[in-house]
Nucleic acid binder design. Structure first.
Lengths: 188, 188, 188, 188
DNA sequence: AATGAATGAGAATTCATTCAT
DNA sequence: AATGAATGAATTCTCATTCAT
């Protein structure tokens, strides 16, 4: 009888624990020893679950995207009215800000060093799409071109905050964007 | 007889030549040998002009920001009418897209690994400000809150394109943003 | 209820199964995991039967030599006439060629890394002796000096084939050697 | 002006110095640090001259074979009479015994771990051929089949001595082989 | 007995940096 | 000033061995 460990489940835990480490220092700058130490295992164990640093990183990206998608979905599930959804999305996006930033850091890193293949790209786009959709619902936007623009605003705030700007925030910028949109559409 | 070269001038040339290399691979991932080879000198020469990889990188950031600022300014100088400026800025931002993306890559990289000090930050902000101003003039925006929002849109497009999205572009998104702004303000 | 297996018997089976693996890759180059996988058990099981890689290897050498000796002996047992023996030895040596090569590989490997102790050495010499004797009988050689020379020829063929030469074979070279011997002795 | 080093010449010196180290411990068992230390340089320097352990080993094999061939040739060059040649070959083979053994060790090692390509093989065969030829001249053998047999005897002595047998030697076994040959041919 | 997860010392290799020329 | 050889600490990764189940 072997030691009882759900290999796959544990692998996912290790990935979750490495998330911050990779996001903070970047793929190239963090060492496997630092990762191992940071999540409390030996390098040997790390390599027992992942064949290489690169694969670990790829799985990290994948899991973090998929989890993000699931989280948004599940948040939406148990609510019926638009008002409820709006509240939840607003709450969600503020609460997830740090995570969103880290996720974007990871993705930028990933793009720089890997020839991003279609599967990965679609995963990222799907994730982004969910976030855009959630925000679009919050702001009651239907025009797809404007949803895209909204995506840019979100990404812009993300990048701004990633680079340390404290003058902008999701609430403020999205709020302003919502107002402008409302004002412009009233006219039509 | 020493070669007649202005030490400082040559240093700047080396920085200019390293720009793409650092932007493409990232600070941690590129090696000094790769940089040296990429710009056609020996590692020894590189170390003759820069005491360390880190300092080289810092000077790279600084020079690239300052140059960007100067470029925008000079572009604006010789034009009087708004229309002329608009044309030039539009042309400029499209033409510089790739450079802007690389610059942002570098800056993200820099922020991840250095405790950004006020001097650096102000440099970056000044640079960003110039770009925002240029774009603001193009779109005839005066409200500072909206200029900030515009900054987010620009950054968002930048991030989007950095991550490989081909569905968005400065022209399209800024155009749309301009329209919405116009529509919303007409009402007032 | 423990499984009904003779511990010692099973150990021997494991040794037999590891023979090829060690011979093909060499002691230093093969890993215990590869061995375990190759013979269809877990590393834990391997270590249950052998305290270390080194001991496993030593026992492998010993068992393979002893088995070789027994095989030659048993082949000889049930035959009385010289002719019969000759036929069997000839058959045996051709049929065992691959095994002999592997055995020699193992032994070379062993000598390189271990201070060969007298017990081991005598084992090897006894084995070699048997083979020489068998071949000597086949060729009806009695002079001990010439038996030694015969040993060299056998070893030479072994080494040649180990290194991939397809131009020589036991049958051919031993045959030629026999002829020369016959020719030279007729004269006396 | 760079440090004045004949890169290629120094590479060859490093190879020559590594010869014994690899032969004694075997490719898999020796570490690059041990090699570096053994030849008095840093690991970094080793990797400055050889891209990998494997390539170092391959070049080692090649250089050692080629050198062997050249040595035999040069030894033969300046001598006219058969007697002189015989003396030199006898001297050579005894004096080179240890080197021949090590070379064979290396080659066995090489064969075990590399898919030997035709170029390598022909190098080895050419080297072997030279040795056979030299010995054949010494013993005045012309029949190609018997030269091949002679090769087996040489290889057999080589293997025997490699495995520690002190009862056989080139002089003794080749001498005996020569006598037998002479005896057998006189009859014809 | 049997498994395979866990360990950490040690392997190959890289790379910022120094230094002789 | 310029070169590239040399260094060795640090990196990624491996593997004999141990141990909980």
């Amino acid at each position: 009888m072997p030691k009882i460990v759900d290999h796959d489940q544990y692998r996912k835990e290790l990935l979750a624990k490495s998330f911050n480490l990779f996001a903070e220092k970047g793929y190239a700058a963090i060492t496997m020893r630092q990762v191992a130490q940071g999540i409390g295992v030996s390098t040997g164990t790390l390599y027992h679950y992942f064949p290489s640093k690169e694969v670990l990183f790829e799985q990290l990206i994948e899991q973090s995207c998929q989890e993000s998608i699931l989280t948004v979905q599940s948040r939406m599930k148990n609510t019926q009215t638009l008002r409820e959804r709006l509240a939840l999305v607003a709450e969600y996006i503020e609460e997830q800000e740090e995570k969103l930033i880290r996720q974007t850091q990871l993705w930028i890193d990933f793009c720089q060093h890997h020839a991003v293949n279609p599967k990965d790209l679609s995963l990222w786009q799907r994730m982004n799409h969910r976030h855009e959709q959630a925000a679009a619902e919050m702001l009651e936007i239907t025009n797809p071109e404007i949803v895209k623009l909204l995506g840019c605003v979100i990404d812009g705030v993300l990048l701004g905050r990633m680079l340390g700007s404290r003058e902008i925030s999701f609430t403020k910028q999205l709020g302003l964007f919502g107002e402008i949109l409302a004002a412009s559409s009233e006219k039509n």
